[in-house]
Amino acid sequence: MIGLWVSGSPAAQDGARNLHSKLKLAISAQQDNWARSPVEGEQDNEGLDSPSSRWPIATYQGILLCVIFSLLSTPIGLELNLGLVLSVSDRQIFSALVATCLRNNIFYYPNMLTRYRNVESLTCMWVGVEEIKRFGLALYKVSRLCGRGSLGEPDEPDSVVLRLSDLQFPMPDDKNLWGASSNPELAQRLLIYSRRDRSDDPSVTNWVSQSGMLLETDENWWN
């Protein structure tokens, strides 16, 4: 959908808009499924308590991309607080997504690690945790860009926004780690770039929730 849009072709962009409309309808229709909280001990179709069965991160990413497309494909409108404007339907979807992530506490670092407790592959575990970190930061950036006004007032049921204090995890790891070609090489690089903020104790770490000043001054440091 986004690929069609950025191609610049009028016909492709019309197709992207049509796909976006259908995607929003599907997301809304399936909200009871993706917005529900996982049941303790819940298993997937194969009888395994897999990471994907507890937190469908790929689904969350798709929903966020759908909202981002709405911002890309509509004329830019600014409110008095200089925030971008979301339509009512987009606001409801975005707020439901944020509320789901907060309710399931997916941005709490120990929970990220627990999600992969049955995964033996170091690469799979590390990539999965880093994926959640980057998803959380992207969700925060959209929330911040849209501003409080376009996401409703505090006493409204659809006013859920993501704040820095909700991102209770260490900063994303060094980009050089993505160049590792094998599990052993990744393990070696993780040791080299090991930092004290890997601790599960927020009182002795440099979690994003404690680094608001850094993110407010330069939000592109983690790209």
Rank of each mutant, 00 (worst) to 15 (best):
Q168T: 13
L215E: 04
S9W: 02
V142P: 01
P154Y: 02
A138K: 15
L190Q: 12
D90G: 02
L72P: 00
M125G: 01
S87C: 00
K141R: 13
P56S: 09
S52F: 03
D90L: 07
S211A: 09
S211H: 00
S182Y: 09
G152W: 05
S159Y: 04
D197G: 07
E219H: 06
A138C: 13
E46H: 03
L164N: 07
L78E: 08
I68T: 02
Y193I: 01
P75C: 11
R115M: 12
N45L: 10
R148H: 07
N111W: 03
L78A: 07
L65P: 00
P170L: 07
D166H: 10
V88M: 14
R115H: 11
S143D: 04
E131W: 00
G8A: 04
S182L: 06
F69T: 05
E153I: 03
D197F: 02
A26S: 10
G3D: 14
Y116M: 03
L145G: 05
K175V: 15
D174E: 07
R198M: 14
R103P: 01
G83F: 05
G136V: 08
M1T: 10
G83Q: 10
L82Y: 05
G152M: 14
V129C: 07
S159W: 03
D14H: 01
N33S: 11
S121L: 11
D32K: 10
L25R: 10
R91S: 15
G8E: 06
I57E: 15
E46W: 05
N81E: 12
E216Q: 15
L80M: 08
L164F: 11
E131I: 00
A187Q: 15
V142W: 01
A138P: 03
I63W: 07
S199M: 11
G3T: 06
R196V: 13
R117S: 12
K24Q: 15
N223I: 10
E40D: 14
G152R: 08
D200A: 08
S50D: 08
S209Y: 12
A99T: 14
R115P: 02
V119Y: 03
R36W: 07
Q43F: 13
N104W: 11
D90H: 02
P172Q: 09
V208P: 01
P38N: 10
